[in-house]
Design a protein around this nucleic acid. Structure first.
Lengths: 248, 248
DNA sequence: GCATTATATGCAGTTTTTTGCAAGAAAAAT
DNA sequence: ATTTTTCTTGCAAAAAACTGCATATAATGC
């Protein structure tokens, strides 16, 4: 058996199970554990997997790209599809961070012709796949929890642009208290986004309704459109239906 | 039996079974293993298959992996380790994009206390793992090929900061022609980086020596330190040793 | 056709790579 | 603290690769 074959086998096992034991693989392939140990060491050096005591784990499992399961993915994808309808060719938009906005980015057609601002590293990276989109990252101090730019510099940069649409998420929404967040800096930033936008679209799963936090981003009527996974006529939306916002 | 016949036979065997052993084929075709070895070596050079110890494997078999392999990874890791020594607590640095700089980022100790500027999305993402580092992304229009910010806005932002150290890569280096690039915008940006830095460190594998392109970033003596995978006294570095730069 | 040149093949000796094993160190588990 | 498992290091045997060279085969020019 060629070394290359073992390497492929090891990699596919790691990809499949996220982690493996050296002894298992050695048994599987009928070679000594030492051989597998050396193989894994090589693959680790090539950054194809990460070696750990007794075995190996897949890179996605350990690296910054947390392949962690996205909460309420299906609902978020429903929202993302609705939001993607609003993206017209030639428009200048901003996309916020967060898992819902990431799903939205994935739903934007690859060849769409848009100018897209963002403060979120994952959003920017995902947008790199769209050849016809001009992507502009609004720089600033990076907030580790959100993998996005925050702070005075980012806010200042935002003050110099005028957006057709901004698509934002929020930590908490309430028909009376509006959009609120846990983090002061994030609130400042979202205020600046809303200010820079002709129209603001809020993407939020219905589970966030009727929840609030200490710092307030905006009143409900500061946003123009709210997109949830629900049907716009759903009774859970009743508290929002008589407000001056468009519900999708 | 003609050489061409053997080559066809070898290729079809590889296509069929994804892998072959030199001894098997030699036995099959009634020629010596040396002949087959030479055949496979030729086919490997022509990129029709991949030669491995003891045999050959099909290209699809090995290279259908999601993340593209990093060229000359080991050399780049050697460079990265040397560069990491230069990073002192409390310093304000900038890290360029590119695979060599990415390896450098990985080598920076996780708990290092630094302020780090960057224009590269992957570098920024990787820096998110370092809890004690303040990371600042210099915004601007994103260049899809390099996944980094370029353009007037980025250059303008750069003009407002003063860096202790900047760690940069380059497309091409030559002891006489200096640092050159294929891309005009990238050159403008790197000029701005060098201008904003008290000291500039160039990370480059020796393979890039004696190569040049149409647009010039800087003269060799515009950089303070050059780090390669070689020993500083290596004869391949002789053309650089009498210049006014520090070689590591 | 025939001689000359260039290329291809096989062989022997040497070097490198791979692999398994063993003993002690280090890390996890109990 | 003790036991078990895993790691590291060094070593040796086997397999494979490389080198130089002699020979065989094919290609070319006359």
């Amino acid at each position: 058996m060629l070394k290359e074959e073992r390497h492929q086998k090891i990699l596919s096992e790691v990809a499949l199970h996220s982690r493996i034991l050296l002894t298992d693989i050695a048994d599987d392939l009928n070679v000594s554990v030492d051989t597998i140990r050396r193989d894994v060491k090589e693959l680790d050096k090539k950054q194809r997997l990460k070696k750990v005591h007794g075995g190996a784990v897949s890179l996605g499992f350990v690296s910054h790209n947390p392949q962690t399961e996205i909460y309420a993915l299906e609902e978020k994808q429903t929202i993302a599809k609705k939001a993607a309808e609003l993206v017209k060719d030639g428009s200048v938009i901003l996309i916020d961070g967060g898992t819902t906005c990431m799903e939205f980015v994935r739903q934007i057609p690859v060849k769409k012709n848009i100018t897209c601002f963002t403060l979120s590293l994952p959003v920017a990276l995902e947008m790199m796949n769209k050849p016809n989109a001009e992507v502009i990252f609004i720089g600033g101090k990076l907030f580790k929890d959100g993998q996005m730019a925050i702070g005075a510099s980012a806010i200042n940069n935002l003050s110099q642009i005028r957006l057709d649409y901004s698509f934002i998420g929020t930590g908490y929404v309430d028909p009376i208290f509006g959009l609120t967040e846990f983090d002061w800096d994030v609130v400042q930033l979202k205020k600046a986004i809303i200010k820079a936008s002709k129209k603001t679209v809020l993407l939020s799963i219905s589970e966030k309704f009727n929840s609030q936090q200490r710092y307030k981003t905006a009143d409900i009527n500061a946003i123009n459109t709210m997109i949830t996974e629900l049907d716009p006529k759903d009774s859970k939306l009743s508290a929002f239906q008589n407000l001056d916002i468009h519900i999708l």
